[in-house]
């Protein structure tokens, strides 16, 4: 197995500026603050986290749609963070993105042919219009859009079809890696499944690698081989898809997992729920030590608020960033009283 994309201590900090003509930096939003991960070729890496955790920024940083503050994003041997602008633009042929809002990410004034041909023109794929059109028709068929769509405009399609257009736009460039930023969250449930199946089928037939970014853990688990859980700009846990459900190690993952509703009354009635108190702290002013310690039901007196835990391997490719992961697993470290989780067992 080869690593297609590797992030090493990637950081994206947005400066907060004030002033009219001569502005000065008054602080930083630590949107992504030291993330290391690797995506294997032909696999799907799922990145989950709640809003404001920096997952979208991370996806955009890989494509350099936002500036990388520090760290490396090595794609197939090249560090994208160091590439000059024009070379970065050219390497975007191999790195594509599917967006959350199917309508918003399509220019309302372009018809489908023009939308799909734009990327090809930018990268010099296809000699002439006819050749491009043939290629576009082929891709449209692949993503399940009628052949007559070429001259139509985005507003004439339904939500699911628009997302298929977005996928087709990425596919015409024959990329190696597709970053899917919330690919289904704007769609209706029955349509979500169509798009998920399409993504899986395309991966199989075209050998694609995905970095799927989503807030819906069930969707991510369905589609991913490896899952990384983000909290406030950093990974707190990374594990193979099956392990993360069967034995979540980080307290935040446990809480997240217990909060995802399952469409089955039997399961819902017998589940253990860990309710977190409070809200996500601001990424402009993150807590010291472990980022999660302000809401953690297992917070300990020592280390948690002073020492930032590293993401470390606890066996079997399961990585977790918690000082007390082993203790929590074997029961020697229990939930502290003041932040005791509400345990519902019926």
């Amino acid at each position: 197995m080869t690593t297609l994309l590797e992030l090493r201590d990637l950081k994206v900090h947005f400066p907060v500026r004030k002033g009219i003509l001569f502005d000065r930096t008054v602080g930083h939003v630590y949107a992504v603050d030291g993330v290391s991960l690797s995506v294997e070729a032909g696999q799907t890496y799922g990145l989950v986290g709640e809003s404001g955790c920096g997952k979208t920024t991370l996806g955009r940083a890989v494509l350099r749609l936002v500036d990388i503050t520090d760290g490396a994003a090595v794609f197939d041997g090249t560090d994208l963070a160091q590439l000059p602008e024009e070379e970065m633009r050219r390497s975007r042929r191999r790195l594509q993105m599917v967006f959350q809002d199917p309508l918003g990410s399509l220019n309302p004034r372009q018809n489908i042919e023009s939308i799909l041909a734009e990327g090809m023109a930018a990268h010099g794929i296809g000699a002439d219009r006819e050749e491009r059109r043939a290629r576009i028709s082929e891709i449209l068929e692949r993503v399940g859009l009628p052949a007559g769509s070429l001259s139509r405009y985005p507003h004439e399609f339904s939500g699911g079809q628009r997302q298929r257009i977005g996928i087709a736009r990425a596919l015409v460039l024959e990329p190696d890696l597709i970053i899917c930023d919330e690919p289904v969250s704007a769609l209706d449930v029955s349509i979500q499944a169509q798009v998920i199946n399409l993504l899986e089928e395309l991966q199989e037939s075209m050998g694609l690698t995905y970095l799927v970014i989503a807030h819906d853990l069930a969707v991510v688990r369905h589609i991913s081989d490896v899952i990384g859980v983000m909290y406030l700009g950093a990974l707190v846990e990374e594990a193979p898809s099956d392990d993360i459900y069967s034995e979540p190690r980080h307290p935040y993952t446990k809480a997240l997992m217990s909060a995802v509703p399952v469409p089955d009354p039997e399961v819902e009635d017998s589940r253990e729920r860990i309710l977190l108190t409070g809200d996500l702290p601001s990424p402009a002013n993150p807590p010291t030590g472990c980022r999660f310690h302000t809401r953690c039901p297992w917070r300990q007196e020592t280390r948690c608020d002073t020492e930032r835990p590293e993401l470390r391997d606890v066996g079997g490719g399961h990585k977790v960033a918690c000082h007390w992961a082993e203790g929590i697993a074997d029961g020697t470290v229990g939930p502290t009283t003041e932040l005791a989780p509400t345990l519902l067992k019926e």
């Binding site: 339904s158 939500g159 699911g160 079809q161 209706d188 449930v189 029955s190 349509i191 979500q192 499944a193 169509q194 998920i196 199946n197 853990l217 069930a218 969707v219 688990r221 369905h222 589609i223 898809s241 099956d242 459900y245 997992m257 995802v260 399952v262 469409p263 089955d264 399961v267």
Partner: peptide, 26 residues
Amino acid sequence: HGLLGSIPRLDAPRGQPLHPIRGSIN
């Protein structure tokens, strides 16, 4: 029936395929 078949379940074993409803509300 179709709605339930369309939803990925957190507790389902991995690899279980989804069965979407075809078409759209239109």
